[in-house]
């Protein structure tokens, strides 16, 4: 037990043994999966059409929004390049499903139906459509276990989206509550503020929504304010989740790469480096 807690030797043993319990997990999962299959295959034409229409509108709206986002992202990257500051972009994601098994009710853990065979690694962040859910702790060949951000043993570096105050969000053990115990009494934080991941721990990608501040209590007798936040992710409702591989290539590296390319292009006069001219101007302020 001590070895499991403190060291990593037993991890491979645990991964191997988890194959043993995989059939059990599948068996428990089966009734839900079967009913889901029936629901999907017995859906009426009208239901499907309605769903299709609503999904289409949603897609259109999201596309419109992402157009703007792309423009903003390129602008952001360009401005950051002007400042020579590094900014990580681009992540790879994989959609996985939660298995409907219950674990220890006092630990906020979930089982995911993807494992080592899908290149999942311990510490990998998981998201849902609305925000960060948690991170992977144990990886088996076919399944893995993830701990949610509300688990009492979990902490996550965040920042206030409005003004960039950095702090740490701790799990409270209640599924709809995060605690922010390290915010000074005079800090500018108010209910309704969005908390996004700051990416400082190096584990979670920066800029994803984590929680919304729900209440701030200033107690003059204490050095820190008592701040409570509600997770944005639907921790107890989502079934589909996203696994993220944070990308390590930052804009500075990309810039180096483009510069190398430019060098090549200059060496090779056949290809005119016209589209890059604007970039070069921007890079030398």
């Amino acid at each position: 037990m001590m070895m499991d807690h403190r060291q990593n030797h037993i991890k491979s043993l645990r991964a191997g043994l988890s194959v043993l319990v995989y059939p059990l997990q599948l068996a428990v999962e089966m009734p839900g999966a079967v009913s889901e299959w029936f629901r999907e295959s017995l859906a009426t034409r009208r239901q499907l059409q309605e769903e299709n229409v609503s999904l289409r509108t949603q897609l259109l709206m999201l596309k419109a929004r992402s157009q703007k986002l792309q423009a903003l992202e390129t602008e952001n990257i360009r401005l950051r390049e002007l400042l020579d500051s590094s900014f990580k972009i681009g992540e790879r994601v994989l959609v996985a499903e939660l298995m409907s098994v219950n674990l220890d009710p006092y630990k906020h853990q979930v089982v995911i139906n993807k494992g080592e065979l899908d290149k999942i690694y311990p510490g990998q962040p998981i998201l849902d459509a609305d925000g960060i859910m948690g991170q992977v702790v144990h990886v088996g060949p076919y399944t893995s276990t993830a701990v949610l951000i509300t688990d009492t043993a979990h902490a996550l570096p965040v920042q206030v989206n409005r003004n960039g105050i950095r702090t740490i969000a701790l799990g409270s053990g209640t599924i709809n509550r995060l605690e922010l115990p390290y915010i000074p009494n005079n800090a500018d934080i108010q209910p309704g503020d969005l908390l996004v991941s700051s990416g400082l721990g190096g584990r979670f990608p920066p800029g994803y929504p984590v929680a919304v501040v729900q209440g701030v209590q200033h107690d003059p007798g204490r050095p820190f304010a008592a701040v409570i936040a509600t997770p944005s992710a639907q921790l107890n409702r989502s079934r589909e989740i996203l696994l993220v591989w944070p990308d390590d290539t930052s804009t500075l590296e990309m810039k180096a790469a483009t510069q190398a390319e430019e060098q090549q292009l200059e060496d090779d006069p056949e290809v005119a480096p016209e589209p890059l001219a604007a970039d070069e101007e921007a890079e030398t302020p």
């Binding site: 037990m1 319990v21 220890d104 630990k107």
Partner: peptide, 14 residues
Amino acid sequence: GLLVDLLTGSLLGQ
């Protein structure tokens, strides 16, 4: 007990 540990995600051996 070991199987329960694996199933419920508790410390291996608890």
